[in-house]
């Protein structure tokens, strides 16, 4: 069962998610080794596949580096839940087929180590530890379509293929 890793912080920035000293590569496996390194050096070791990062406002602020999303995906993180997200990071998540969950008050509703089950379509988080159900506003349809296709380029490719088939 995915567990929550709670960081009671606002403004967790892209330099903390993946320090720029590692940006000399775009190899996801390499980036994943350093996920959240300057925030919590032990994160990669304790993260099991599907685990969830929970944080406060403005998660992912700073650089436009998509490496931040790739590091998180590479570390097999299942989701990031934050009170709010920085704009470019949010967009990069959607473009990479990774669902960012915006949930004001998340830090009051989820404690470190809580076991969570997320239903993206319904927009609910089942907190098994606390035996509560938390609702969140699902992504708008156009963004959901991109995430469902696995990312923006997959989405574009699918659309272009559709067009060609229509012409035929």
């Amino acid at each position: 069962m995915p567990k929550a890793h709670v960081y009671k912080r606002d403004h967790i920035n892209t330099d903390e998610i993946i320090p720029a000293r590692y940006l000399n590569t775009d190899n996801v496996a390499e980036l994943a080794k350093h996920c959240l390194e300057d925030l919590d050096p032990g994160f990669v070791k304790k993260c099991t596949p599907g685990d969830v990062i929970v944080a406060g406002d403005d998660f992912g602020c700073g650089s436009s580096r998509e490496h931040a999303v790739w590091a998180i995906q590479g570390a097999k993180v299942g989701a990031v839940i934050a009170h709010s997200f920085a704009r470019i990071f949010y967009r990069n998540c959607i473009n990479g087929g990774f669902y960012p969950i915006e949930l004001p008050g998340a830090l009051e509703k989820i404690r470190d180590g809580d076991e969570l089950q997320i239903d993206y379509e319904a927009g609910t988080i089942r907190n098994k530890t606390q035996n509560t159900t938390i609702r969140f506003t699902p992504l708008p349809d156009f963004a959901l379509a991109i995430v469902r296709d696995g990312g923006l380029l997959e989405h574009i490719k699918k659309k272009e293929k559709g067009k060609t088939e229509n012409v035929r």
Partner: peptide, 12 residues
């Protein structure tokens, strides 16, 4: 500013 996927989409 945009990330790499947006950049790829814009380039293409």
């Amino acid at each position: 500013g945009i990330g790499s996927t947006d950049l790829a989409a814009a380039i293409a």
